[in-house]
Simulated assay, not measured.
Amino acid sequence: MSDGFATRAIHAGQQPDPTTGSVIVPIHATSTYAQDGVGGMRSGYEYSRTGNPTRTALEQCLAELEGAKHGRAFSSGMAATDAVLRGTLRPGDHMIIPDDAYGGTFRLVDKVLTEWGVQYTPVPVSDVDAVRAAVRPETKVLWVETPTNPLLTIADIAALAQVSRDAGLKLVVDNTFATPYLQRPLELGADVVVHSTTKYLGGHSDVVGGAVLTSDDALASSVAFLQNTAGAVPGPFDAWLTLRGVKTLAARMDRHSANAARIAAALREHPKVSKVYYPGLPEHPGHEVAAKQMHGFGGMISFIHVDGEQAALDVCAKTRLFTLAESLGGVESLIEHPGKMTHASTAGSVLQVPGELVRLSVGIEEADDLVEDLLAAL
Rank of each mutant, 00 (worst) to 15 (best):
G4F: 15
F5L: 12
A6C: 10
A12S: 13
P16L: 07
T20W: 07
S22E: 14
S22N: 13
I27V: 15
A34Y: 07
G39P: 07
G40Q: 09
E46F: 15
S48T: 13
G67V: 11
G71L: 09
A73I: 10
A83W: 11
G87I: 08
T88G: 05
L89H: 03
I97P: 01
D100Y: 06
G103E: 00
T105F: 05
V109T: 09
E115C: 12
V123E: 04
P124T: 03
V131D: 00
A133H: 07
A134Y: 03
R136N: 00
W143K: 08
T146R: 00
L151P: 10
D156Y: 06
I157G: 09
S164D: 07
G168F: 02
K170Y: 10
A178R: 02
A178E: 07
E187D: 15
L188R: 01
A190G: 04
D191C: 03
V192I: 12
V194I: 10
K199M: 12
K199Y: 15
Y200H: 14
G203H: 10
H204R: 15
D206P: 04
L213D: 11
T214K: 01
T214E: 05
Q227E: 08
N228K: 09
T229Q: 14
T229S: 13
A232Q: 10
F237K: 15
F237W: 02
W240V: 03
T242E: 01
G245E: 03
A251V: 14
A261W: 13
A264T: 00
A265I: 06
L267W: 00
E269I: 08
H270T: 09
K272S: 15
S274M: 01
P282A: 06
P282C: 04
H284D: 11
P285W: 01
G286C: 03
G286F: 00
A290M: 00
K292H: 12
K292E: 06
M294C: 06
G296F: 00
V306D: 07
D307W: 03
G308S: 13
A311P: 14
A317W: 12
F322G: 07
T323H: 10
G329I: 03
G330Q: 04
E336Y: 12
E336C: 03
G339W: 08
G339D: 07
M341C: 02
H343D: 07
L351H: 02
V353K: 03
V353M: 10
S361Y: 03
V362I: 01
E365V: 07
A367N: 04
D369F: 08
L370Q: 11
E372R: 14
D373K: 15
A377I: 02
